[in-house]
Amino acid sequence: MSQLIAIASGKGGVGKTLITAALSVLLQRRGHRVLAADADMGLRNLDLLFGLDGSIHYDAAQAARGKCLPGQALLPVVPGLDFLPASQKRTWERIDIPSYQYVLESLSGSYDYTLIDCPPGRDGAYQAATALADEILFVVEPSPSSLRDAAKVMQYAARQKRFHYDVILNNFYADGVITPDAAKARLQTGHVAGLLPHDDGIDRAAGEGRITCMADSLPFCQALSATADWLETGKAIEETALTALLPKHQAQAEVLPGLSLQRRRQECRNWRHYRR
């Protein structure tokens, strides 16, 4: 029976699509059959990270409308990992939610893990995308807006009596203004399901559509492996070991020698775009 895991966030641009793609690949490398489903209707991006842009003929919305069989909407990424694309034309307002959920549930039965890349926020689209989830992972980056929005959506989940959620801290630095401990305190959580470092290597792989070729030695992949362990065994992650993988901000300047401070900041913003 598949475990359905929704990757969600309070705001966009915090790395949920990257985490969905990379975690899917790591689980596939461990011998699991994995389905990665893009549920961000009208704004899909998961296909880009898998290098499947231009390869999509059918999507989940078409399967929900009966325009194709559910299996026809699937695309193989690598052996053991398949992709279910979201619609680029139809937003959630134009999706028959029970039909979509039937498609997702019927397909997920053939996999060990189904990872759902959800739309950000807490509106009807979020509710539709997470309705079948056994676990919700809220992705948070070290910014005041991300922390505030994540806190709100976690409070919303609790009010809905959906307590099967955890937090992944993403894109953190060792010397950041917002530390992992500060983020946990703001979110009022004593533990996390992941602590992921800023990593230029994984950003490049994502931007070039090469997530399936990412090196296990990347700090991001080493840290995300702890999350995969947690999913497999339920054992709490060792945050001390993961903290050692966090880089310092100074390392970012070394990657961009000879650039002005203004230009360097712009390049950093461009790279962080890939963490959407």
Rank of each mutant, 00 (worst) to 15 (best):
G12L: 12
G12F: 12
V14C: 11
V14T: 12
V14L: 09
G15W: 15
G15E: 14
G15N: 12
L18D: 00
L18N: 00
I19Q: 02
T20H: 12
T20P: 12
T20W: 10
A21S: 07
A22W: 07
A22H: 14
L23R: 01
S24T: 07
S24Y: 13
V25E: 06
L26P: 00
L27S: 02
L27H: 04
Q28I: 11
Q28A: 14
R29S: 03
R29M: 03
G31E: 12
G31L: 05
A36W: 13
A37R: 00
D38Y: 09
D40E: 12
D40W: 14
M41H: 08
G42N: 09
L43V: 13
R44Y: 05
N45R: 09
N45I: 06
D47Y: 08
L48A: 09
L48T: 13
L49F: 08
D53H: 10
S55W: 01
Y58R: 00
Y58V: 03
D59H: 04
Q62W: 07
A64C: 08
A64K: 00
G66L: 02
G66E: 00
G66F: 02
C68P: 03
L69M: 14
L69R: 15
L69P: 09
P70M: 10
G71V: 07
Q72I: 03
A73F: 05
L75C: 01
V77M: 06
V78R: 07
V78L: 00
P79N: 10
P79K: 11
L81V: 05
D82Q: 10
D82G: 01
F83N: 02
L84N: 09
L84A: 10
L84D: 07
P85S: 10
P85L: 08
P85Y: 04
A86K: 04
S87M: 06
T91H: 14
T91E: 09
T91K: 13
T91N: 14
T91P: 05
W92Y: 13
W92R: 05
R94S: 15
R94Y: 14
D96M: 02
D96H: 10
D96P: 01
P98L: 08
Y100W: 03
Q101C: 10
Q101K: 11
Y102N: 15
L104M: 14
L104A: 08
E105M: 15
S106E: 11
S108T: 08
S108C: 07
S110D: 15
S110L: 13
Y111R: 08
D112C: 07
Y113I: 09
C118N: 05
C118Y: 13
P119S: 00
P120F: 09
D123R: 06
G124Q: 15
G124V: 11
G124A: 14
Y126H: 11
Q127C: 08
A128P: 07
A128E: 02
A128V: 01
A128C: 06
A129L: 01
T130V: 11
T130S: 08
T130L: 01
D134Q: 07
D134S: 09
I136S: 13
F138M: 04
F138G: 00
F138L: 02
V139K: 06
V140P: 01
S143T: 15
S143G: 07
